[in-house]
């Protein structure tokens, strides 16, 4: 994809023995880039930070978890925000339910009704949950929670065991509900300058709705929905 215009190392090596010494460590295939800044990332360093998981299962670690195990973990760490059955609390996200609601006036976008990939669930729980203590769960706990939330959504049976083999095979109900190519622009107004419409009707106004926090004085903490 790129052509590299490497500067010859000869000049550097004549003036600095340290660079000469570093060449055998880097090896011929891993010569430094043009600038040579920073240090090579070791496999151990990469493994510790590379936490992403893809739909095909790439990135899933060893380990496993059952639905029952997940229920116990869920009750400890998750239900206070997401509700005992994934129904959500206040503005904290609902995790289950909402099947068939995507065309309704108030769609409920949950793991079961909306999420296209099961891998995303493992990845997100592992990287960002529980909200107050991210990246504190063990891999087995994450597998168990993933199994439990999938079961809450009737996507897997109660005897489901989540691991790196089974998760990529889980078909999410809304897997085919996405178009992964931006169709926009889907609206392109005309640049009319005169006589653009016959009448103008105001259909709605924010006046008097009392939803707007104050934009003067101290921060407005008082307004609730």
């Amino acid at each position: 994809m790129f052509s590299f215009h490497k500067k010859p190392r000869l000049f550097a090596s004549t003036c600095c023995g340290v660079i000469l010494a570093s060449i055998p460590i880097l090896g011929a295939a891993e010569q430094a880039g043009h600038y040579g800044y920073g240090e090579p990332a070791t496999e151990e360093q990469i493994a510790a930070w590379d936490i992403d998981v893809r739909p095909d299962g790439k990135g899933l670690p060893e380990g496993s978890g059952t639905v029952d195990e997940g229920m116990a973990v869920y009750e400890t760490y998750c239900s206070s925000c997401h509700g005992a059955f994934g129904e959500g609390m206040g503005r904290y996200p609902k995790l289950a339910g909402g099947e068939g609601s995507l065309t309704e006036d108030r769609p409920e976008k949950t793991v079961g009704s909306y999420w296209p990939y099961a891998s995303t669930l493992w990845d997100y729980i592992h990287r960002a949950m529980p909200f107050f203590a991210p990246q504190s769960l063990t891999d087995d706990q994450v597998y168990a929670l993933t199994a439990y939330v999938l079961n809450l959504n009737y996507i897997v049976d109660g005897d489901f065991v989540a691991n790196k083999e089974t998760l990529p095979q889980v078909q999410m109900p809304n897997h085919d509900g996405f178009i992964w190519e931006d169709p926009r622009p889907v609206v392109n107004n005309e640049r009319c300058m005169e006589d653009c419409k016959e009448e103008v009707t105001v259909s709605d106004s924010a006046a008097g709705k009392n939803l707007t926090p104050s934009t003067t004085g101290p921060l407005d903490e008082g307004i609730t929905e």
Partner: peptide, 11 residues
């Protein structure tokens, strides 16, 4: 070689 389909690009 593929997108990762993360939470912030799916859900």
């Amino acid at each position: 070689d593929k997108p990762w389909m993360q939470r912030e690009e799916t859900s």
